[in-house]
Write a protein that binds this DNA or RNA. Sequence first.
DNA 1: CAATTACATAAGAAATTTTCATGCAAATAT
DNA 2: ATATTTGCATGAAAATTTCTTATGTAATTG
Lengths: 299, 299
Amino acid sequence: MKLLRNTLLETFVTVAECGGFSDAQFALGITQSAISIRIRDLETSLGYRVCERGRGGFRLTEQGEIAYQKARDMLRSARDFDAELLELRNAVTGDLRIGVVDAVSSLPGLNLAVALQRFLQRPNEVRLEIVVASPIDLTQQLISGELHVAIAPFRSLSPDLDYVELCAEEHRLYCSTSHPLFDRPAEDIGPQILSQYPLCQRTYDMLVSPDLGLPEPRAVVANMEAMAMLIETGQYIGPLPEHFAKPRVAQGLFRELASPELCWSSPFSLATRRAQVHRRAVELFVQDVQAACAAVSYD
Amino acid sequence: MKLLRNTLLETFVTVAECGGFSDAQFALGITQSAISIRIRDLETSLGYRVCERGRGGFRLTEQGEIAYQKARDMLRSARDFDAELLELRNAVTGDLRIGVVDAVSSLPGLNLAVALQRFLQRPNEVRLEIVVASPIDLTQQLISGELHVAIAPFRSLSPDLDYVELCAEEHRLYCSTSHPLFDRPAEDIGPQILSQYPLCQRTYDMLVSPDLGLPEPRAVVANMEAMAMLIETGQYIGPLPEHFAKPRVAQGLFRELASPELCWSSPFSLATRRAQVHRRAVELFVQDVQAACAAVSYD
DNA sequence: CAATTACATAAGAAATTTTCATGCAAATAT
DNA sequence: ATATTTGCATGAAAATTTCTTATGTAATTG
């Protein structure tokens, strides 16, 4: 159940994350004195102090900070290594670290909940981990091995990754009730009018529709909720996925500023690190996501 | 002194390499029965048998074969990881795995012996490992982490590697005493004449001078000694580094078929995996190689 | 200034790992 | 065919390692 891995390093990482020995007791399931000894042994073999501790407070030393990051990364790949060996007995096990962009849960065409359900119904011993981040961060984390799969509208494709297109996400521009444009008749709405109002944009990939000559964005966000909040202020117009804005539109809070030039969609893909074979868990999850997408498109 | 690493895996790898438990006793420094227990424990936690053994002979199982390769790779990176943490205390330690092409020892302009001497004179606890392979293999091994640095005439550059040019290697075409061309006057030698004789070429990068319209090579080799042997038969003409052929020319065994079109040189570079920072040992060795090259060029 | 918190340390207890002795089965020698 | 040797497995005792308990110390807090 744990082939690679090393108690000293695991202790160190846990201690660093707990911010001290006493909290780490519970995380590690051993006594404080055992932790004290382990850290002492680690420091002895490393030849330097990894953390300052005591009643005065806890903090990693300069070297400890670097060691911590390296150790954390190494333990992660050690776990993946374990899983690789264990999966040779045809088990499905190990970590499955999934990354997605935010506001993905309501995206029609990608039923992630169903995909997860399918996956979890298989016999497996997998430990799931789901993180939310921007496409750019997700790409980085895939390459570094922090993630196994990621689902996002990837704008720039990395040569180190493999992509499978899943579905498309429809985008529109929106404003809120308190915005001057809210009550303007639909025929008035066009690029020229829009360009006179402050625009809120996404940081990560400038997902607004192909060059509308819209003004420099006055605000940028990395999250759909945050985008919605800024639009809600009435100070900004901003792009949102249609599925995400829908409830607010239905409530009469938002208005879609839809002229033909302001409708666009971005393709959602699933990305994995380029490799001959993936871990069984990864392989199966990818299948399940694709199956879930296919099921949706038949509806 | 060993942070990551795991006794079970190390035992397994050593046993696999020794081809049995009894030989591995000496390699591991423990008794045969301890090995037996360790392998049993490993198999218990993996859930499958890694090797068939007994008086009937030793061999890895199908799963064991895969596990062995993964484990070997993993232990290698575990050692590198150890070295990274240890080098935070300003030590120079760990493995330094160097790859070169063959016949590099006599290359003027690259005094590898001096570079190694410089490196070894520094205070360090490094374990050296030097392998000889073709530029293509070296590139692969750098990318996979099997090697830390490689020195070779790299023809195609990988985006995953960093290159530093060191010096150039002069090449000429040669034939031996028993070859029909050996006694032809120098003014007869030209591409037209040469193209009538079988040519021996290198497998790895077709290092012969830029397109001479020479005939399809009749023999290929991946090693300078082998090239020299084939030329020595008198059946082939073939390219060799000038410095390598020199002793044989001096002995009157080879003749240089040197017309202006048949002189060319290939740049020798040092390659490392692209990374922000390298291990201290790697960094220092690269410096030493460059210093050794610079020293030569002042002579 | 007492109480508390966070860690260090010593000694014994517990758990793990190794060795030693021996057993067994297959291959080889007689 | 039988004996011997080789390669590994196993049980029990020994050795080593690791943990817990109990206690100590220093810095902070009330």
